[in-house]
């Protein structure tokens, strides 16, 4: 085992273990944080740090194979869809008229009312 191998081994260890830690922290956040709007951020810790670190760690373990390609495809996909899904959850909550509680001394921005084209969407969406 030469120096490069040792380095890669240590690196993937570090990535996977820290990824695991972030996954746990994210779900802890999902459990501990006080309300829904705060919990969104807890979930996004899992979705960003946990996913990135674990996928990289696994890539290094797999070496230069088709498995790495699949892992990278999964990684890219999660990288794009994770935030989109989170945004969709938050957006649905906002649109149904639910506002996050503000910290002291801050007033939240009020969203503009639905635009006409959104209204069309709403009609189409309901027809499904």
């Amino acid at each position: 085992m030469n120096a490069v191998d040792v380095f890669l081994e240590v690196l993937s260890w570090a990535l996977i273990v820290s990824g695991s830690v972030f996954v746990i922290i994210g779900s802890l956040g999902l459990w501990r944080l006080p309300d829904f709007w705060a919990r969104l951020h807890g979930a996004s810790v899992t979705e960003s740090a946990g996913v990135i670190l674990l996928i990289w760690g696994m890539c290094i373990q797999a070496g230069f194979t088709l498995i790495t390609v699949k892992l990278i495809i999964i990684g890219i996909f999660l990288f794009i869809t994770g935030p989109t899904a989170t945004h969709a959850v938050a957006n649905a909550a906002l649109v149904t008229g639910w506002r996050p509680s503000e910290a002291e001394g801050l007033t939240g921005a009020e969203p503009e009312p639905l635009r006409p084209e959104n209204e069309d969407d709403a009609l189409d969406g309901g027809e499904e």
């Binding site: 779900s27 999902l30 829904f36 979930a43 996913v51 999660l78 899904a85 959850v89 649905a92 909550a93």
Partner: peptide, 18 residues
């Protein structure tokens, strides 16, 4: 709330993939 549940299911799915 319902949104908490949706968020949890989504998170659960990500965990399943990993």
């Amino acid at each position: 709330t319902l949104y908490d549940r949706v968020l949890a299911v989504n998170s659960f799915g990500t965990l399943t993939v990993l």
